[in-house]
Structure formats: structure tokens, C-alpha cells
């Protein structure tokens, strides 16, 4: 049988799943609920603060990791889930899922480098 290259995407899936398990709930809570609902001050996500974070090299790396890994995790899981609900395994689904993750990652890198 052919040697599998699944370890590339699977390691991203596993790494992203681990990171996501630890940070995604609290990030969604802060940015999507607590601040918009006024439970936390709008200053938490203020323009000046976020700019400092996104301009700091370490901040860029952290932000990129928090986008990149969960995105690949999601893409890989979405591909298997599409198969679960009856979509045949094939190049189209694979290109769509991994392609979207690749584009998202590139966009994140470009935006972060430009800020």
C-alpha cells in the first residue's frame, strides 16, 4: 500500500484541536459575547490595544497560531464530516476544505505582516 501523507494534515488537525480546546471558548466568549454585550469593557478590544498586540512580533506569532492551527483543524474535520454525511471522498472536497484553510492562512499572514 502507498505510504500515506496524512500525517501532515493530521498533525495540524491534532495541534489545532488541542489549541482550540484550550483557547477557543474563552476567545469566543470575550470577543463575541462579553464585550459586545457590555459584560466587559469595550476597551478590552479597543483599536489602540489591538494595534499594539498585532504590531508586536510575539503578538503576531500568537495571533497567527490562534488562526492558523484551528483553521486547519476545522478544515480537516470538515472534510471527514462531509464524508460522514455521504459526500464521496475525492479531490473536489479535499481541495475545497484544505484550499480554504490555505487561503485563510495566507490572508492571516499577509494581514499580520502588513499591520
Amino acid at each position: 500500500m502507498a505510504k500515506s501523507n496524512k500525517p501532515i494534515v493530521w498533525s495540524l488537525f491534532a495541534g489545532g484541536g488541542m489549541l482550540s480546546a484550550f483557547v477557543t471558548p474563552v476567545l469566543i466568549f470575550v470577543t463575541g459575547l462579553a464585550v459586545p454585550l457590555g459584560l466587559m469593557s469595550l476597551d478590552s478590544l479597543s483599536y489602540d490595544r489591538m494595534l499594539v498586540l498585532a504590531q508586536n512580533p510575539v503578538g503576531k506569532i500568537v495571533l497567527f497560531a490562534v488562526i492558523f492551527l484551528p483553521l486547519w483543524h476545522a478544515a480537516h474535520r470538515l472534510l471527514t464530516t462531509l464524508h460522514d454525511v455521504g459526500l464521496p471522498k475525492g479531490r473536489i472536497a479535499m481541495t475545497a476544505c484544505y484550499g480554504a484553510a490555505a487561503l485563510g492562512s495566507i490572508a492571516a499572514a499577509v494581514v499580520l505582516l502588513r499591520i
Partner: peptide, 14 residues
Amino acid sequence: QEIAASNEGVWDCT
């Protein structure tokens, strides 16, 4: 590993 690490091996498990 020829079998276990192939696409039809562990990688088909979700």
C-alpha cells in the same frame, strides 16, 4: 506499518 500507517489503516479512523 505498511498496512497500519496506510490511508486505509489508522487514517480512515475519525
